[in-house]
């Protein structure tokens, strides 16, 4: 795991919003931590478990179960290429290859400078505009190979 430090006070601030000892806040709190730090930091999870009185094993299980959580720091720009059936048929593979080559990473990877993370997802529910690429949560439809460089620049 990459060693990075998070600000524990920021994590505490997030946790204040959740009633102490109430395990039902687990997923929400993990989401907030993911949003704040860009990943589910170990130190933050320790604070969370103490606050919500949840075993660390359970929090780890949830954090690894959902794709929305990442245990590694992610890039500033998160590019998700849909590889669902519709997008696959309309050439999402080419887009993935293009991005891998341009960024020098594999799907799931993050560039060393923590600028870009590339992910593939299975159907984002916008098949009519396949192939779909989302950049920092913004959807782009009918993406043509070659147009990605511009999209990335815009997403920055």
């Amino acid at each position: 795991m990459t060693e990075t430090c998070i600000d524990p006070n920021k994590a505490r601030k997030i946790l204040e919003r959740y009633p102490e000892g109430d395990a039902s806040g687990l997923i929400h709190a993990l989401q907030d931590i993911q949003a704040e730090f860009g990943y589910v930091a170990h130190e933050a999870v320790e604070l969370l478990c103490e606050h919500l009185n949840v075993p660390i094993s359970k929090a780890f299980s949830a954090a690894t179960f959902y794709k929305a959580f990442s245990l590694e720091p992610k890039g500033e720009v998160i590019i998700r290429v849909c590889t669902g059936t519709a997008c696959h048929i309309r050439g999402s593979r080419i887009l993935v290859d293009e991005l891998c080559a341009a960024l020098g990473i594999e799907p799931g990877g993050t560039t060393k400078d923590l600028k870009f993370t590339l992910e593939t997802v299975n159907c984002v529910g916008a098949c009519a505009m396949a192939p779909v690429v989302s950049i920092n949560g913004k959807y782009h439809g009918n993406v043509q190979p070659g147009s990605l460089t511009k999209l990335i620049q815009d997403g920055k």
Partner: peptide, 20 residues
């Protein structure tokens, strides 16, 4: 004790130590 749990899902699921 609740020390261990499953991690991941699908074919990658395994019984794991929290944060390895």
């Amino acid at each position: 004790a609740n020390a261990i749990s499953s991690a991941g899902r699908g074919i990658e699921k395994m019984i794991a130590r929290p944060f390895d």
